[in-house]
Simulated assay, not measured.
Amino acid sequence: MMDTIIEPGDIARAYDFGPTSSRKDSVLTSPVSLFRKEHAMTRDDARRALGLDLNRPTALVQLGTGDSDVNEKMTAALSGLLGWKDLQVVLTKVPVDKDGNSLAPEGLDLKVVRYFPLAKVLHAFDAGICATGYNGVHELLPAQVPTVFVSNIRGTDDQEARAQWCNDFGFALRADQANLADITEKVKMLQDPAVRKRLSNKCAELPNTTGGQEIAAMLYQLAVEQKPVRSKSFTFARLMAQDHINRGLRHVANLGLRRVALVYRFLNPHITVQEIDQAPPVFGSHITAAELHPLIKSATRYEHLIEGASDSYRKRREEIAFAAYGKEMIVTKTK
């Protein structure tokens, strides 16, 4: 029922043996990443933006916290950084458990940063420790950050397969997520300058992550040139009926009541007695928490724009916002 199915590419696609790996009904693009060499800050500029020392080594740790096993992985990873002279460790969240107890061993200089998009400042880091999610892999490796991947095994994303591919082909180090000692050992390897240089140089061989531009071009073509592919009416009706049946009798009953309510409202419509102009929304491309917090909490609507977007893009966004928020309808029933 879709005009096109778009599948973002994955650098580790060769190790994908999941349920959709053999399907041929999608358009495969290059990998998608927020990292762009032309937009990324230099090492020194990125460190200034994050408030880091320009001359000390820096490691980025992007691992989750919460469940006990996840917390243990965080502690094991941070333990592997002990002994790295003058190291400053950057995290994206405070390393504490649900009771507020620290997960970090004594002796590390920790700094929690909130910067978006982090891809813009990745050149600040000499090493990275990260889960093997799609975004982490396709940002850290194109930025040539020497990385140890510690996979999460929840959900449908096969992070272990992606980590194994990166390890087998020399782009990163894979830690056994089920072995805390191995996590510590693999992270400790990042203290060796030769290991970091080897991994960084190897990452320079990766293909360009231009999938975002490719997908944007496809969506543009769909919007302005192609006629939509019409689904077969019988097939569409059958799938919709099957969907409703699968949800159970309560859903079917609610669907019927909704139809009755719509018929009633058609015969007995509300009457609009007053229209009030709404305050125009605030438009901006803010990225810091300090800037975004008051805007999001404000009673005035906030519309976030893509940084560096064209004037025509902004104009169209303003038109859509006015159509959506332009007037407040005060509705009463007068008869």
Rank of each mutant, 00 (worst) to 15 (best):
T75S: 14
L108S: 11
D168V: 01
Q191T: 10
A119C: 00
E275S: 10
L206D: 05
R301P: 11
M41F: 02
Q177N: 03
F17D: 13
A194L: 12
I306N: 05
L122W: 00
P228L: 02
T300E: 01
H39F: 05
A119F: 02
D157Y: 14
S285G: 10
S233W: 14
T210L: 09
R196Q: 09
H244Y: 09
A299Y: 09
N71Y: 08
A131V: 12
K120W: 02
H123I: 00
S298C: 00
A181W: 01
E275R: 15
P228F: 00
Y264K: 13
F171R: 09
E291C: 09
T235R: 08
A178S: 07
D97P: 07
N101P: 02
A12I: 01
A76V: 06
A237V: 07
G308N: 07
F116G: 05
L34Q: 15
F236C: 07
V150Y: 14
R259G: 06
F283E: 00
L54G: 13
V70D: 03
A40N: 05
R56K: 11
S79C: 10
P8M: 06
G51E: 03
A253P: 04
G18Y: 02
V282G: 11
S151D: 04
F169N: 11
D99Y: 05
D67E: 15
V145A: 13
V187M: 04
Y220F: 14
Q278H: 14
A175E: 01
H138W: 08
N152R: 13
V137Q: 13
G107N: 13
S102M: 02
L82F: 04
I153R: 14
T92S: 12
A12K: 02
K327S: 08
G155V: 12
K24G: 12
V282W: 00
L28P: 10
D45R: 00
D182F: 05
Y302F: 15
P228Y: 02
S231W: 07
P228A: 05
R48E: 04
D109L: 06
K197Q: 04
Y134L: 08
N152G: 13
T209E: 13
D53G: 09
K120D: 11
L34E: 02
R47W: 07
A161W: 06
D176N: 11
H270N: 15
S200T: 04
S310L: 06
E275M: 15
A46T: 05
A161Q: 05
G170H: 12
N55K: 08
N167W: 15
R162P: 09
T288Y: 12
R47K: 02
L267G: 03
A76R: 10
T210N: 15
A204K: 15
R174P: 01
V90W: 12
V96M: 03
F149N: 13
A217H: 09
D192W: 04
T147M: 02
P57S: 06
N152L: 15
V263A: 11
M189D: 07
I183G: 08
K202N: 13
I271H: 10
A163D: 07
S21L: 06
T42D: 11
R258W: 07
